[in-house]
Computed example of a mutant assay.
Amino acid sequence: MSDTLHWSALHLGQTMVPAATVAHGEYVRLVMNYHCQYAFMQHMFCLKEDDRENGWKMWLESNSNSYPSGTPEFSIRIGSMIRQRGLIANLTLRENLLLPFLYHGDQQRLERASDEIVEVARRFGIDSSLDEKAGERSTYTHAIISLTRCMLVKPAIIVAQEVHIGMPPEQLDRFRAFSMQALEQLGSGLLYLTGSVDEGSGLDYARTLTIEPDCQSLDSAEGE
């Protein structure tokens, strides 16, 4: 698969994030503070159409096609595991998991995800809760829902923050094991956003890009 996430140099306030890419099957770590992480993700998921017309800052190259960030074609190919990305409380877990497919209006993908949802949920231990209202959920459940959604979407690239922060040790170990298995099965590229190189994921990164918060500094280390 030839899918590759690209972004041009981005100025986030006084911070500059240099141009880079993440290829399908490649893991890249981007180290910067949380304020910059959320500003970066705005370019990924919330870009306005007039901004795209003035020059794409982020896009996905897929089978000779270019999909700018903020478009449905881009977002259905980019999975996400974002901190503090809440579930919609008055919907069931099943409905929350299927929301991306409803939003994009792809009936074939919706039917396929609906067929797969119980098996994937059973794998992660949430099958008995699928028809419960989301309501208030633990950090672990939010993270597992994000992981389950990625398994259903089968994205080319996943952008992930440290969704494990705050989990008790037993749940953390279980979540890390599930995540490793899912990444191996999906074969997706991964852009891992973290505040520290000591994040402890244990992943084998092709590149680590460290962004200083106050200027244009870049520290790139291969194979960290």
Score class of each variant (00 low, 15 high):
C150I: 04
I126Y: 01
V120D: 02
S114N: 04
L152P: 03
Q107V: 10
G135D: 09
L93F: 13
L130Y: 08
E116Q: 10
L98G: 10
A113K: 11
L110V: 03
A134C: 10
A143L: 06
I88E: 12
I82R: 12
G86T: 05
S128E: 12
L98H: 11
L152K: 10
G125W: 02
S80E: 12
Q107W: 13
I165A: 10
L99R: 08
L152M: 13
R83S: 09
L130W: 04
S114E: 14
I117M: 04
D131P: 03
R176P: 00
R176H: 14
V120L: 15
V153C: 12
A143W: 11
I165D: 04
R85L: 15
R112P: 00
I158Y: 07
Q171W: 01
D131W: 12
E116T: 02
R85P: 00
Q107K: 15
K154E: 14
I126W: 02
K154F: 02
E119L: 08
P169D: 14
S138V: 04
R149I: 01
R149F: 06
T139Y: 08
M151K: 14
R85V: 03
L130P: 02
R174E: 11
V163Y: 04
P168V: 11
L98S: 10
F175V: 06
I88N: 13
M167A: 07
S138G: 09
E136G: 01
D115H: 12
Y140R: 14
D127Q: 08
I158A: 06
I157M: 06
I158C: 05
G135Y: 02
Y140C: 09
R85C: 13
E162L: 10
Q171Y: 05
M81H: 01
I157D: 03
R112T: 13
V118P: 00
K133T: 04
P168T: 01
H104L: 07
T92C: 02
A121K: 00
N90S: 13
I88T: 15
R137C: 11
A121P: 00
D115K: 13
R123F: 04
S146E: 14
L147C: 01
V159C: 12
L98Y: 13
G135A: 07
L99N: 03
L98K: 10
D115V: 03
A156C: 13
M167P: 06
A143Q: 11
L102K: 15
L99F: 12
A177R: 09
A134N: 11
A143Y: 09
G135V: 06
S114G: 07
F101Q: 10
L97D: 11
G125P: 02
E119H: 10
Q171H: 09
R85F: 14
L98N: 10
L91V: 03
E116I: 04
F124C: 01
H164G: 06
Y140F: 15
D127Y: 01
